[in-house]
Design a binder for these strands. Structure first.
Length: 726
RNA sequence: GCUAGCGUAGCUCAACGGCAGAGCUCCGGUUUUGUAAACCGGAGGUUGUGGGUUCGAAUCCCACCGCUAGCUCCA
């Protein structure tokens, strides 16, 4: 007997072997037809799989309208795609084919290369499979038989997965659709006709289970929807995102430039981009001072030993620029020590080092040729201690720690909040670089708070409030918080178990108290502490990781930080690292995309452009410009001999928020005609003073007028003023 | 770093084995303008770099540099 409870609370009994489809059919034929899958006790299951007997099951029928349906259908679409690829190409090995937030992919191990030119052929085959409307049939096999079948099918990666990842599964489920059989957990849609609209998106390389040492696979991306309309809306959104690409807009509007002559991933801020950044920096600086922070400046390099103490140097060695040596032999000695430490030093190599080093004027005195490895290293370290190694700093914290340590601290002084727009350098892998969003030199809006253990929660809360305030000021008020915790099974973290538990508990407590929704994510913490990251949704629904607040009990330990408590004894402070923007590069990059380069008045590099009708009113235009400048505006005057139409067009294309048109009429009476970039149909001719007052108010309020409503996941083409811009 | 695709004027692109071109930008001139492009002229290139194949290479081949997408990484 199968006992089910439907969402309306009603309980029904059915004979054994009843499927959710049978139940749907009893309710109504149209419902049964609309069903995609079923939710059984909260688990998504196949519509035609018999329900288990015994306890009462909570059953919910999933139709296209339920959010879970899309994922089920896309997973089936991935199978259809794989089936099509196997029809088009020979010897296709299957890896994994999961669902993504916006579609799905399937990884293939195959001799042929899939090119975009092949997409139509594959899509055609998929369309044929969908038109045939065959069912997805689940069956189970015991382990050995499953392995046998996969090897019969020449699916080596499936066999490997069965033997490794699924080693503890006694029985395995498969899905068959026509000639296509795939090891798969499911669930699937009942038959292929549920896939109403699909499209192949792109193809790129990937690796089996993410292992870069293994063979490269081809990953084919696609997406699918329940209607052509939804697919079209999605494609429009992709197009909109492409149109907002900060690399394109940054070039077009002269915001930033990356020159190969300077170097990969090194951002040059052009005057207009620098203006935006400068305004943001001023904005946040004023806010920090209001909140009791103290600005500091520290150098952009520091001794390697300091980063060895902090743990950054050993932990992130591959992602850092090589140390800078004060002596030409520095890197040779460094290599020498590395070989000794790793045990790779041979007598021949050692002889070469000893003979070579004098040519670099390195006098390694008393090198114990016949001594132990430890003695040799000690001797070389002795040389190093007289010849400093510097690191282009990858993090600001050690420098700020040194400021903290520069004087004795009393509990009365805490919290100490040190803030700096600190530029750091990281040797990111070349394939990671992406415009301003991923660079090798970046400036963090960084600060480090040193406080007593009792102050931690309060300070943490205040930093979260600061991040909230900053994001809100920029119209980025749709966000969620990720609480990144350590992976208890990994040993890559520094610090004691107790410290980690305290830190994680403190973060959790504050987030709960602030009623900030958060998702815990194990294994995502920094190596020195847990963190709360702000995932911010922009106006076209994309998510970006921006602000971050990190709690750290470990660096104070490593640097032996102290303060004198009320009990006249030394205590260890706690550190909080935080950056509301993250980095200026990344944040401005995101803002460019968020605003589509049409910055609100308070951020616009050029806020106002004065457009004289003819040269006859140039003098008046100059007066207007002077007064606007005196009122603090970033303003220019278009003195070209072009017609007013041309001047307006250029200002409009350059996304200048306001144009002030001045002609003989305005000059006579001290007026300006205000042309709002977003509302050219309602121009007003007003006294200059009135215009200045209105514009000043808009800046003061940091008014944001041009973005579409945040949170919209679909881009309604045309409704957003920004979207209409070009 | 890996796999694939791509590098032509400041920008966007054309020429795809046979004389490197257009529009915009820029410069000079004419024009003095009332709400999204006035007109005329000019300049701008060792086709990413270096090799090779060829009578001849932007075009074909190789290496390097860079960009893009994805993978891996992200203090």
């Amino acid at each position: 007997m199968v006992q089910v409870q439907l969402p309306d609370g009603s309980v029904h009994e059915h004979p054994e072997g009843t499927t959710p489809y049978d139940i749907a059919l009893k309710i109504g034929a149209r419902l049964a037809q609309a069903c995609i899958a079923a939710s059984v006790d909260g688990q998504i299951a196949d519509l035609r799989r018999p329900l288990p007997t015994g306890s009462l099951l909570k059953l919910k029928l999933i139709t296209e309208r339920d959010p879970e349906a899309l994922g089920v259908m896309r997973h089936s679409a991935a199978h259809v795609m794989a089936r099509a690829v196997m029809r088009v190409f020979p010897n296709v090995g299957l890896a994994f084919g999961p669902t993504l937030p916006n579609g799905f992919y399937y990884d293939f191990d195959m001799p042929d290369r899939i090119r975009e030119e092949d997409f139509p052929r594959i899509e055609q085959e998929m369309a044929a499979i969908i038109a045939a409307g065959e069912t997805f049939d689940r069956f189970e096999l015991p382990r050995e038989e499953a392995i046998g079948m996969c090897s019969d099918l020449n699916q080596a990666l499936k066999v490997e997965h069965l033997k490794t990842g699924l080693a503890d599964h006694p029985t395995l489920s498969f899905y068959r659709q026509g000639e296509f059989v795939d090891l798969c957990r499911g669930p699937h849609i009942p038959d292929a006709s549920k896939i109403k609209a699909f499209k192949l998106m792109s193809v790129a390389a990937s690796h089996f289970k993410g292992d870069t040492s293994g063979r490269s696979l081809q990953r084919l991306y696609g997406t699918a929807f329940f209607s052509q309309k939804d697919l079209d809306a999605y494609l429009a959104q992709v197009e909109e995102a492409r149109r907002r690409d900060h690399r394109v807009l940054g070039k077009q509007h002269g915001l930033f430039h990356i020159s190969n002559d300077v170097g990969q991933g090194l951002c040059l801020w052009l005057p207009k981009g620098a203006a935006v950044r400068g305004i943001l920096e001023e904005f946040i600086k004023a806010e920090l001072i209001r909140r009791g922070y103290q600005p500091v400046y520290t150098p952009q390099i520091g001794r390697v030993e300091m980063y060895e103490t902090s743990g950054h140097f050993p932990y992130y060695r591959d992602a850092q620029f090589s140390p800078i040596f004060g002596h030409p032999a520095g890197s040779v000695v460094d290599r020498w020590i590395t070989l000794l430490e790793s045990g790779e030093m041979t007598p021949e190599k050692e002889k070469q080092f000893i003979e070579f080093s004098p040519m670099l004027e390195a006098k390694i005195e008393n090198y114990p040729v016949g001594g132990t490895v430890a003695e040799k290293i000690e001797s070389l370290r002795g040389w190093q201690s007289h010849h400093e190694r510097y690191l282009l700093r990858p993090m600001n914290c050690p420098h700020h720690v040194q400021i903290y340590k520069s004087q004795q601290r009393s509990y009365r002084d805490l919290p100490v909040r040190l803030a700096e727009f600190g530029t750091v350098y990281r040797h990111e892998q070349s394939g990671e670089l992406n415009g301003m969003l991923r660079v090798r030199g970046l400036t963090q809006d960084d600060a480090h708070l040193f406080c007593t253990p009792e102050q931690v929660e309060n300070e943490f809360q205040q930093t979260l409030e600061l991040v909230q305030f900053v994001l809100k000021s920029l119209g980025l008020d749709d966000y969620r918080v990720q609480l990144s915790l350590r992976d208890p099974k990994s040993n890559k973290y520094v610090g004691s178990e107790e410290n980690w538990q305290r830190a994680e508990a403190a973060l959790r407590k504050v987030l709960v108290e602030m009623q900030l929704p958060f998702e815990p994510r194990e294994g995502e913490a920094a190596f020195y502490g847990p963190k709360a990251d702000f995932m911010v949704r922009d106006c076209i629904g994309r998510e970006w990781q921006l602000g971050t607040v990190q709690l750290d009990y470990n660096l104070p330990e490593r640097f032996q930080l102290e303060y004198i408590g009320a009990d006249n004894r030394a205590h260890r402070p706690v550190m909080i690292h935080r950056a509301p923007f993250g980095s200026m590069e990344r944040f401005v990059g995101v803002l460019i995309e968020h605003f589509a380069a049409a910055f609100p008045l308070w951020l616009a590099p050029e806020q106002i452009r004065i457009l004289p009708i003819s040269e006859k009113v140039n003098d008046y235009a100059a007066t207007v410009e002077q007064q606007l400048k005196a009122a603090g505006f970033r303003v220019t005057t278009d003195l070209r001999s072009a017609k007013i139409n041309g001047k307006i067009r250029d200002a409009q294309i350059e996304l200048i928020p306001y144009m002030l048109v001045v002609g003989a009429k305005e000059a006579e009476q001290g007026l300006v005609t205000v042309r709002d970039r977003l509302d050219a149909d309602h121009q007003r001719t007003v006294p200059l003073a009135e215009a200045i007052a209105a514009l000043t108010a808009e800046v003061k309020e940091r008014r944001i007028r041009q973005t579409a409503k945040p949170g919209g996941s679909t881009l309604s083409g045309g409704e957003d003023a920004v979207a209409n811009e070009y």
